[in-house]
Design a protein around this nucleic acid. Structure first.
Lengths: 223, 223
DNA sequence: CCATGAATTGACGAGCCTGTTAAATTTAAC
DNA sequence: GTTAAATTTAACAGGCTCGTCAATTCATGG
């Protein structure tokens, strides 16, 4: 059943095995197209035909591969989460002093959301569905442990060397970072419309990025 | 035309006036039911029949009143924004010292989002639609000025009496408050599923509320 | 009491979208 | 070259949802 492992599912090529046409490449392209479509229109709003059109294939083919709309959606979800986890894994913070490490984490997260609007919107969509699909995927739980662990290690180091105060909850800090970073992209439109300020303006975004890191650092620092 | 003003459209009940059928009461009930439905399933996902069922009327009647799905949605949007603005208006901060005033604003916002999940989810939905509907409503722009103004006054007072540092942008502060408060309800499900921590747990929520106020106050305070 | 116009309903038609099925087309192995 | 599995296509059937329209209630003013 492993949907994510499909990428490396090159079938060990048993003797009695017949034919690869372009299934692997197709699957990848479908997931990518589906990501855009789901992110743009939500689960119900997304159209299988639209996804098919974006990949120059047909709806029937997608169903042949994945089994149905819901399963395509799940594949996309696992794909994007795997992607961000992988990116986080390359952060390499161990040799940085705590404050610099936090700074890097916050800015990485902020930038990643900004550059991967599809991911963010997908998370929003999934929440609108009350996490119904996510709960079905066991892969998710192990998939997101690392970020918390690294964050916890940095905070512990900071407490140790006196740059941070004690009693900080890493999960809550991660939440604050995610909240500030996500809001910047998820609520762009209503905010811009209401306050007549283009939230996407270059300078503003850079300033906001700095503000978010400052907010987090001030929260962690000694009184 | 005025969709929102319909609430107070009680026809002055002249002596020779008997009750019509139930148009006013119906309209109110429809908006309420539509709020729930749109919040629960998004714009596309919401069903006019479902709304009708919740109000014991029919789809045709709703169209007779509002004109169509999109217009019902718009009426709901204006309704909830008017509601939160009104609640904010009752905050009465002028006589509080700056720090206490900020504390009240933050906690009010946090609590309001928590108690009005429908409102929050509607904002999310509208953002998923890239603010398409909001932009059509001129009412929105004037509707949300007050909160920024009051916040700006409190910050100015704080800068004046030395409790806050200078150079703070009220809009960005409001954004941070909104981000932290909203995330707490919008991302409940994915966060709970991924980190196996029930974000809704009583104690956690109260602690988080305190954390959010602390985050904001630390950001505003002198270095 | 009746005429009038607003409020309300039931039924209809059209559009979109999804999943399936059977047929056609490739491809690798033999 | 044949063959059989793996892909791909085209067409179908069923379901859901939306907006509209003509018909029907009902309170009210004359």
């Amino acid at each position: 059943m492993s949907l994510i492992s499909s990428a490396e599912a090159q079938p060990a090529r048993g003797a009695a095995m017949r034919k690869p046409k372009a299934p692997v490449a197709n699957r990848a392209r479908i997931v990518k197209a589906a990501l855009d479509e789901f992110a743009a229109r939500g689960f119900k709003g997304a159209s299988m035909d639209a996804i098919a059109a974006r990949t120059h294939t047909t709806r029937a083919l997608i169903n042949y591969y994945f089994g149905g709309k819901e399963q395509v959606y799940l594949a996309v979800l696992e794909h994007v989460y795997a992607e961000i986890r992988e990116a986080e894994g390359r952060l390499d913070l161990e040799h940085l002093p705590p404050v610099a490490a936090i700074r890097r984490i916050v800015q990485f997260t902020f930038d990643y959301y900004l550059a991967h609007e599809g991911f963010v919107r997908l998370v929003v969509t999934e929440n609108q569905a009350k996490g119904r699909h996510l709960k079905k995927s066991r892969a998710m739980r192990t998939l997101n442990r690392p970020i918390i662990d690294t964050l916890a290690r940095v905070i512990a180091r900071g407490e140790g060397d006196g740059s941070f105060r004690p009693g900080i909850d890493p999960v809550e800090v991660h939440m604050a970072i995610a909240a500030l970073g996500m809001f910047n992209v998820t609520n762009q439109h209503t905010f811009s419309a209401i306050f007549q300020r283009d939230m996407g303006a270059r300078g503003d975004v850079r300033r906001r990025r700095e503000m978010v890191t400052e907010i987090i650092l001030r929260y962690l620092s000694k009184p």
